[in-house]
């Protein structure tokens, strides 16, 4: 790739670059949980909706396996961001 990996953003929420993920992979860190914990990729506003697949692809490439063999990190609720006000006991509405 001729583009600069320091300028390619993999995780837009936590501003994690391609270079940062490559560096982790080159250190032998190929566990999706470890990558998440060290880079914060996937823990931001969108909860990995973009970067999860990109990083899994990179891990698969590094390990020379297919993407379906990469162990995903855990999905966490909520699916979309919720204002705390809507969750308070006064305002919470089941619907």
């Amino acid at each position: 790739m001729k583009d600069n990996p320091e300028k390619i953003i993999v995780c837009r929420c936590a501003d994690v670059t391609l270079k940062e993920i490559e560096d982790l992979l080159n250190q032998g860190i190929v566990d999706m949980d470890d990558i998440k914990r060290l880079s914060r990729a996937g823990m931001g506003q969108c909860q990995g909706k973009t970067c999860r697949n990109l990083i899994m692809g990179m891990v698969a490439g590094k390990m020379n396996i297919t993407v379906d063999k990469v162990k995903e990190s855990r999905y966490r609720p909520p699916a979309v961001a919720i204002p705390l006000d809507l969750l308070t006991e006064e305002n919470f509405n089941e619907e």
Binding site: Q47, R76, P77, P78, P83, D85, L87, T88
Partner: peptide, 25 residues
């Protein structure tokens, strides 16, 4: 938990009512 925690914390720190939860564990 999310309900109880939001209720208690926003009572003491009211501006956090507008903060949006993205993740719980």
């Amino acid at each position: 938990f999310a309900k109880k925690c939001s209720s208690l914390v926003t009572r003491v720190l009211p501006p956090l009512k507008n903060a949006r939860m993205i993740r719980q564990w």
